[in-house]
Amino acid sequence: MAKQVIVLILASVLFAPWSALAAESSCVECHRPQPGALGDPVGQWEGSIHQRHGINCSSCHGGDPTIMSMEAMSLEKGFLGVPAEDDIPSFCGSCHAGVMEDYLLSAHGQALGAGGPHCVTCHGNHAVELASLDIINRDLCTRCHEYGQADEMKSAMAKVDDKISSLQEETRRLRKLGFATEKIKNSIFSVRNQFHQLFHTVNVETVRSQTEEFSQELEKIDQQVAAMHQEVKNRKLLGGGVVVVLGAICILLVLLRKTYKDEEERVHPPGPPSMRP
């Protein structure tokens, strides 16, 4: 029993909604009532993907949210404050390290500080949402350059993106039917991760050649999934046959019973059954 209690406490701590803990932080307490740029980020962050996954103010901006005074924002407590534009990639890259690397190597990253876009340009800051291909759109891209190349990359990647989502959905469905989809799930996940590295290269050639490769890999996975779908179909076909045969047996037995019933009634016509002799 004692062990059980410990596990329950552990579980409740591990899975407690982080927002509840974060809400008590001094950052939110003090900043929420403030006007303008000092208070707005709190509301923007609430409901964002960062907030939902327990990433709070101090995760990015540093400082100590447990101190209820200005000391929470002292340099000794690792407070970073608002990053300068050139520092934004390393600010976000402290967690999204791989993406930062891809970005810095890309044309976008090379143009950092010379009017080139940084993370916030496309992803926004506090109200950040799960990234999707929709970030590549005419409005956003044409702020700096023509949309043509971006559109070309987007449509090349959209195919792979759709395929990944649909395969993920299908494996979830097959899993619920009892199929062992662990391996397939892992290979989809691995392709997905490699594929996501493409997003920040912003290089048409790389995107074109690599999406081709990913498509081929997904094609292989698709065949495995198709084999499982075929198996589901085969089972239903076999089942249909068995049910029909059994159903026919059942009907024939009912008819057979009727032949006896007819005989029984011929000997003893229906009516009150005779009492024991």
Partner: peptide, 13 residues
């Protein structure tokens, strides 16, 4: 007659 039907049904069965 029941026996005739029966023989037929048993064969099918």
């Amino acid at each position: 007659s029941p026996p005739k039907r029966r023989a037929f049904l048993v064969t099918l069965l």
